[in-house]
């Protein structure tokens, strides 16, 4: 199982409204599969895939979460230790785009402050049904310091690129932070191995626990 060597292990979460295509993005990326009549995810699913950045092997541990999960206690568990997040919306459904703000807030609340976020407009194959103009999203991403990409899990446009991009970005940050050598951050990521270093802003975890 663990026989494949890797230099970095990053936890990345897939979030977004229910039905935007998170599970299919994941299956396209990890198994190159697409399932037209997939059911909504229950709880969480995991998948891993390793990619090469520079000379390093980066193993991505991707958590595919249920879009409809209501309990903060559980969603915060998803974000725990995540270094990257793909915030997915459906370009043919305005509401999923509108909710992006809500998801962003949740990320800010629960996830690590330094988490790398990428806005992903999925289902780009549904051109004729497009409800969210690419420009709007681009602008929104720029405003919020997010990277942005439009993908299609169905015809696999940009799927690879999206993951590549975010993983590379994380790697850059992590490798630059690693130079600081500050390992004071309480790593909450399960099984975090030594290569993973994210600049700590530990306040979030403790803050959550206190609120009544």
């Amino acid at each position: 199982m663990a026989n494949d060597e890797y230099d970095f292990l990053f936890k990345v979460v897939l979030i977004g409204d229910s039905g935007v295509g998170k599970s299919n993005l994941l299956s396209r990326f990890t198994r190159n599969e697409f399932n037209l009549d997939s059911k909504s995810t229950i709880g969480v699913e995991f998948a891993t895939r390793s990619i090469q950045v520079d000379t390093k092997t980066i193993k991505a541990q991707i958590w595919d979460t249920a879009g409809q999960e209501r309990y903060r206690a559980i969603t915060s568990a998803y974000y725990r230790g995540a270094v990257g997040a793909l915030l997915v919306y459906d370009i043919s459904k305005q509401i999923t785009y509108d909710n992006v703000t809500r998801w962003l807030k949740e990320l800010r609340d629960h996830a690590d402050n330094n988490i790398v976020i990428m806005l992903v407009g999925n289902k780009s194959d549904l051109r004729h049904l497009r409800a969210v103009p690419t420009e709007d999203s681009k602008n929104f991403a720029a405003e919020n310091h997010l990277s942005f990409i439009e993908t299609s899990a169905l015809d696999s446009t940009n799927v690879e690129l999206a993951f590549q991009t975010i993983l590379t970005e994380i790697y850059r940050i992590v490798s630059s932070k690693a130079l600081d050598g500050g390992d004071q951050h309480q790593v909450s990521q399960p099984g975090s191995s030594q290569p993973l270093h994210i600049t700590p802003t530990a306040e979030n975890a403790t803050k959550d626990g206190k609120c009544c």
């Binding site: 206690a73 559980i74 568990a77 975890a205």
Partner: peptide
């Protein structure tokens, strides 16, 4: 069900609602 094991101990209170 398996989700309840994922909940951080600090969220014990909400675990009850789950």
């Amino acid at each position: 069900l398996s989700q309840i094991y994922l909940i951080d101990p600090s969220h014990a209170k909400q675990m009850a609602t789950v």
